[in-house]
Simulated assay, not measured.
Amino acid sequence: MTKIYDLHCHSTASDGVLSPTEVVQRAAEQGVNVLALCDHDTVCGIDEARLAAKEMGIELVTGVEISTTWEGRGIHIVGLNFDKTHPKMTALLAQQKALREKRALEIGEKLEKAGIPNAYEGAKTLANGEVTRAHYARYLVQLGKVSNDGQAFKRYLGQGKSAFVKAEWVDISTAIETIQAAGGMAVIAHPLRYKLTGKWIRRLITDFKTWGGEAMEISGYGQTKDQRQMLARWANEFGLFGSVGSDFHFPCGWVELGKNLDLPEGVEPIWERF
């Protein structure tokens, strides 16, 4: 039987809307055999997810999605199959937590100046951990300021808007070094979603490989067959393993756990190195 892998999803431990247990249960319902919970800059949901996975008969891979800065842009690096208690990982995630909290407070201050008081407190009621822009977006929808999360980013939270605060994250090389020190593998998350030209994506992959990165996500949601083939060619050209992940955050009509995540032929799967 062919296994179904989904090595990138989120829970209420960061900006997802389902608890770690609910994510695992949904994955089981969708026929997923191997799952990685990759919450943003936290591993707080892993223990709960592991218990649920044991009950559901799913193999759970330890995961995290680390926010990094590269050439002035935010780039996400997924870590897979590492020791979440390793001192270097613990220290890095504590640093990221402090940076995320600082940013969240500044966003709240900007929203207050825009006529929306107590936004931080409101967003915090929707968060199980650190407050993210996604929680602010949901709170703005709840207030009736916007009709959906996307509109919240277009009107308030996106770059250049009144409540935008530039993130201050670690660099990619630090993220890779930390993941590998903890015994894991580093993966470029969703390479085509950074609004980069092909030239700049190749430059990103080149730097990632130079710093010791090992894999890139090739199959995700919303891709065409041609896009997957292009990513597969780049993976082979740069000697990177291929990974797959839905980047599931909440039940919706366009993203589902384990759905359409086939890896193109000719790419070496990252899970063969777990």
Rank of each mutant, 00 (worst) to 15 (best):
residue 2 T to C: 00
residue 7 L to W: 01
residue 10 H to N: 09
residue 15 D to T: 15
residue 16 G to Y: 08
residue 18 L to D: 05
residue 19 S to A: 06
residue 22 E to G: 03
residue 36 A to L: 05
residue 36 A to H: 07
residue 38 C to R: 02
residue 38 C to L: 01
residue 43 V to N: 00
residue 52 A to F: 00
residue 55 E to Q: 14
residue 58 I to R: 03
residue 65 E to M: 07
residue 66 I to R: 07
residue 67 S to L: 02
residue 68 T to A: 01
residue 69 T to W: 00
residue 71 E to P: 01
residue 71 E to S: 12
residue 72 G to Y: 05
residue 76 H to R: 10
residue 83 D to L: 01
residue 85 T to N: 12
residue 93 L to T: 14
residue 95 Q to S: 11
residue 96 Q to N: 14
residue 96 Q to W: 01
residue 102 K to H: 13
residue 117 P to T: 11
residue 120 Y to Q: 02
residue 122 G to P: 08
residue 124 K to D: 00
residue 133 R to P: 04
residue 136 Y to Q: 04
residue 137 A to G: 10
residue 137 A to C: 08
residue 144 G to T: 11
residue 148 N to V: 05
residue 152 A to M: 06
residue 154 K to W: 00
residue 157 L to R: 12
residue 158 G to C: 07
residue 158 G to V: 12
residue 163 A to I: 14
residue 164 F to N: 09
residue 166 K to W: 00
residue 166 K to P: 02
residue 167 A to T: 14
residue 171 D to S: 09
residue 173 S to A: 13
residue 177 E to K: 14
residue 182 A to M: 04
residue 184 G to V: 13
residue 186 A to V: 13
residue 188 I to A: 00
residue 198 G to T: 14
residue 200 W to D: 15
residue 209 K to R: 15
residue 209 K to Y: 09
residue 212 G to A: 11
residue 219 S to Q: 09
residue 221 Y to C: 12
residue 226 D to Y: 04
residue 230 M to H: 12
residue 230 M to K: 14
residue 235 A to F: 10
residue 235 A to T: 13
residue 241 F to R: 15
residue 245 G to S: 10
residue 250 F to M: 11
residue 251 P to L: 05
residue 254 W to P: 01
residue 255 V to F: 00
residue 260 N to I: 06
residue 263 L to G: 13
residue 266 G to L: 06
residue 268 E to M: 07
residue 271 W to F: 12
residue 273 R to L: 02
residue 274 F to H: 04
residue 274 F to L: 15
